[in-house]
């Protein structure tokens, strides 16, 4: 089915995106500019989470939206437009990481200190967001992708599986490992959010994840 015959029942936002993409498919530059401005912030953020290299992120965002311009006619409406675009961004991001062949470790020093330091001191010193950022640096790009797509972008696990081109169980497993890793790095998350500097003991909620190791 041609993109011009597609309709969507996935809400007004998807309908608007689909309309723009249909215009992009006939090389309407004005529509592309609107779509670009709309997707640029969320793609930048998402790719920043996966790649962690600001100098690369801009290039990958541009690559992603260039592919959208080139391949708009190939959209088949099997998912939301945003899912399709994010899927392209994911592939581009992973390719960029493959090119680098290294895991970003720019905050490793702070985390090494974390092991020995008092938790509350660390939070006070580097700030809660930096602490989270450090924690996310310690999980794999695929796990970061699942975390970001779930908590920030608000995708369902089926949509994340579409974006990342993997089975649903793989998404759940990646999320499981990400949670376990984050739990070990941010054990007092709940208390820290409620009252930074006043960290409570871990009550075991996240650690109970160990029971669910074999999700696949």
């Amino acid at each position: 089915m041609s993109i011009h015959e597609l309709t969507t029942s996935r809400g007004p936002e998807d309908a608007e995106n689909l309309k723009l993409l249909q215009q992009v498919a006939v090389k309407d530059r004005a529509a592309f500019e609107i779509l670009y401005r709309k997707f640029h912030p969320q793609l930048t953020r998402y790719l920043m989470r996966i790649i962690r290299r600001p100098e690369l992120v801009e290039e990958v965002v541009s690559d992603t939206l260039f592919v959208v311009w080139e391949k708009a006619t190939q959209f088949q409406g099997r998912s939301r437009v945003s899912t399709w675009v994010t899927g392209i961004a994911y592939l581009k991001g992973i390719k960029a990481l493959d090119r680098l062949k290294t895991m970003p470790e720019q905050h490793a020093d702070a985390l090494n200190e974390y092991d020995a330091a008092d938790e509350s001191d660390l939070i006070n010193r580097i700030g809660l967001q930096q602490w989270l950022k450090n924690g996310l640096d310690q999980i794999s790009p695929d796990q970061r992708s699942v975390v970001e797509l779930t908590y920030f972008s608000g995708y369902s696990y089926q949509e994340i599986a579409d974006i990342m081109g993997c089975p649903v169980n793989t998404v759940k497993t990646r999320m499981f490992h990400a949670r376990r890793r984050l739990a070990s790095l941010l054990p007092s998350l709940e208390a820290a959010v409620a009252e930074p500097g006043n960290v409570r003991e871990n009550e075991g909620g996240m650690l109970s994840l160990g029971e669910s190791e074999n999700l696949e």
């Binding site: 640029h40 912030p41 953020r45 801009e58 965002v61 809660l128 950022k133 970001e148 908590y151 959010v193």
Partner: peptide, 12 residues
């Protein structure tokens, strides 16, 4: 935390 954090300002 994830939603509030790390505002990324790309130059659109």
């Amino acid at each position: 935390m994830i939603r509030e954090g790390e505002v990324v300002d790309g130059d659109v």
